[in-house]
């Protein structure tokens, strides 16, 4: 589904991602781990095709991201879920969900839908699926953080991409809701054999819900293995290094 060959990304003198090669097959559930500034988000953005590598290449479903223009083509392949700030607050929930259909709609239909929502059953079904079916016509800004995350997920259900990329999907919700949301995310991804890639802060959650872990630090790969093969030593290494860094900074 995804292939990176020596993909590198720099921001000025800062190496956000050192040459990295990896292959992600369809249907994998992959967690990206590592301290802040380790390159997780950069990697996620590369996989989403929203940024291009300085060197090396990134391919999604066999096509280089350079040839994938933003818009419909990319939206059919990957759907992005950010940290809960990716909805338009002043719009009704239904329009935020139906925004997932924009790749398939023309401009006239999109405009009409803002007045008379099109494909309403689809939006309703998606919202029911994520458990906020009653909020269809509510202003999105009135929803709680957790509910907004669910609406964002409903948009992905309507968009039907082949892979879901989530940037810290549960960092802004409380622990109990985080589990619910992750369960839902994993279920939704599994239904149609979608690939799921999420950057994760909480180690236990990452180990419980994902099948593979990629750990980064300073833009370098620390380890890449199946969740079942991750050892105490791996984690200690990652976290000891992290403390060392903290000391260096001081």
């Amino acid at each position: 589904m995804f292939e990176l060959v020596d993909a590198t990304k720099r921001y000025g003198p800062l190496v956000a991602l050192a040459p990295l090669s990896l292959t992600i097959t369809a249907g994998e559930r992959l967690a990206l781990m590592g301290p802040s500034g380790s390159g997780k988000t950069t990697l996620l953005h590369l996989l989403a095709g929203v940024i291009q590598p300085d060197e090396g290449r990134v391919a999604i479903a066999g096509r280089s991201t350079e040839t994938l223009r933003p818009g419909r083509d990319l939206a059919r392949l990957v759907g992005v879920m950010a940290q809960g700030f990716d909805l338009v607050p002043s719009l009704a929930v239904v329009h935020n969900v139906l925004a997932g259909r924009l790749g398939e709609w023309g401009i006239g239909r999109s405009l009409l839908s803002l007045v008379f929502p099109r494909e309403l059953p689809l939006a309703q079904a998606a919202l029911n699926r994520v458990g906020v079916g009653t909020k269809l016509y509510e202003r999105t800004a009135r929803l709680s953080g957790g509910e907004q995350q669910r609406v964002a997920l409903a948009r992905l259900l309507v968009q039907q991409p082949r892979a879901i990329l989530a940037d810290e999907p549960v960092s802004s919700v409380d622990p109990a809701r985080a589990e619910d949301l992750l369960t839902l995310l994993v279920e939704v991804a599994a239904e149609d054999g979608r690939t799921l890639i999420a950057s994760m802060h909480a180690v236990p959650l990452a180990l419980r819900y994902f099948s593979r872990v990629i750990a980064l630090r300073h833009g370098h790969l620390v380890f890449d293995r199946a969740t079942t093969a991750v050892t105490e030593a791996d984690l200690t290494a990652l976290y000891d290094l992290r403390q060392e860094e903290a000391r260096d900074v001081r």
């Binding site: 939206a75 059919r76 950010a82 338009v88 607050p89 002043s90 997932g100 924009l102 398939e104």
Partner: peptide, 27 residues
Amino acid sequence: RPIRAVRSAGAGRGQTLLYAVLPSALP
């Protein structure tokens, strides 16, 4: 962020204007 999100959901430029920029800016 919402503007980029709508764009990444497959919206063209005009659609992004309709679904993200204008609703946020009109008030």
